[in-house]
Simulated scan of single mutants.
Amino acid sequence: MTQPDPRTALSNQLADVLSNHSVQPEVKREITVTFRVSSDEKARLEQRCIGVVQSDYIRARLFDYSLPRSKSIIPEINRQVIYELKKIGNNLNQQTKAINEAVKVGYQPLSNEAKEYLQTLKELAEILEQTHRQLTQTIE
């Protein structure tokens, strides 16, 4: 079984952390349903759905799912920082994976320098994770 691309894996991991795990069950939804509402009804719906995807809210109310959690509103500056952190994290994961793969196939003995580099990468990954947690905690 092949490992997913590190960039994709990290991106998915960050997306999971940032995303709101909405209503259940997780199924592929292929059919679109539309309906008309008055302006007052639209205003009430928008008020109730602040920070929540409207379709998730409506689905929860119609089908007795648990109501989705309100998503955190992330300031633009934090979104930019998170984007940059994702890019750095992707690069770190790619480098770590390359070193580990090289060691597995025997191309490169794991020298002290490489071991120190791997440790530095792990420490940077932890710092990125902590920074991400701090950015999202200040929002809630």
Rank of each mutant, 00 (worst) to 15 (best):
L67W: 05
G106E: 04
Q108L: 09
K104C: 03
N90F: 02
A98S: 08
S72E: 06
Y107A: 09
L67E: 13
V103M: 07
I73L: 10
V81I: 15
K71D: 12
L110N: 09
T120I: 05
Y117D: 04
G89R: 01
G89V: 01
A98L: 10
G106W: 05
K97N: 15
L67F: 05
V81L: 08
R79T: 12
K104H: 07
K71C: 08
E101D: 15
L110H: 03
V103T: 09
Q119N: 08
R79W: 08
V81C: 02
K104N: 09
R79F: 03
L85W: 02
R79A: 11
E113H: 12
S66K: 15
N112Y: 11
L85Q: 14
K115G: 03
P75V: 04
T96V: 06
Q80E: 10
N90I: 04
R79Y: 04
A114W: 10
Y107R: 14
G89P: 03
N93P: 00
Q94T: 08
P68W: 02
K104V: 10
Y117V: 08
K71M: 10
A102G: 09
K71Y: 01
K97W: 14
I82K: 03
E113A: 15
N93D: 10
S66C: 06
Y107H: 13
E116R: 13
N91Q: 12
N78G: 01
N93H: 10
P109G: 00
E84V: 04
N78T: 07
P75D: 11
I74C: 05
T120N: 12
Y107K: 13
R79V: 04
Y107N: 15
G106M: 02
E116N: 11
N78E: 15
L110E: 09
E84R: 09
S72A: 10
A98D: 13
E113N: 14
L85S: 05
K97S: 13
I82D: 06
I88D: 07
K97V: 11
Q95C: 06
K97D: 14
V105E: 08
N91F: 10
N93T: 02
Q108T: 10
Q94N: 10
I74E: 04
Q95T: 06
V81G: 00
Y117E: 12
K104T: 12
E84P: 00
Q94Y: 12
K87R: 13
Q95D: 08
I82Q: 02
G106P: 03
N100I: 08
Y117N: 06
S72P: 01
K104F: 07
N100A: 11
L67Y: 06
L92D: 04
I99F: 00
Y65V: 01
Y65T: 11
A114D: 13
K87G: 02
N90R: 11
P75T: 06
L118G: 02
T120S: 14
G106V: 00
Y83W: 04
K115W: 02
P109E: 13
N90Q: 15
P75Q: 06
N93L: 06
K87M: 03
T120P: 00
K115P: 01
Q95N: 07
E101P: 00
I99D: 03
E84N: 11
T96G: 07
I88V: 07
V103R: 14
Q80L: 10
Q80S: 06
A102Q: 10
L92Q: 01
A98C: 00
P75A: 02
Q95I: 10
L85D: 12
N100K: 13
N112R: 08
E101A: 05
R79I: 05
L85I: 07
P109Q: 09
S70W: 01
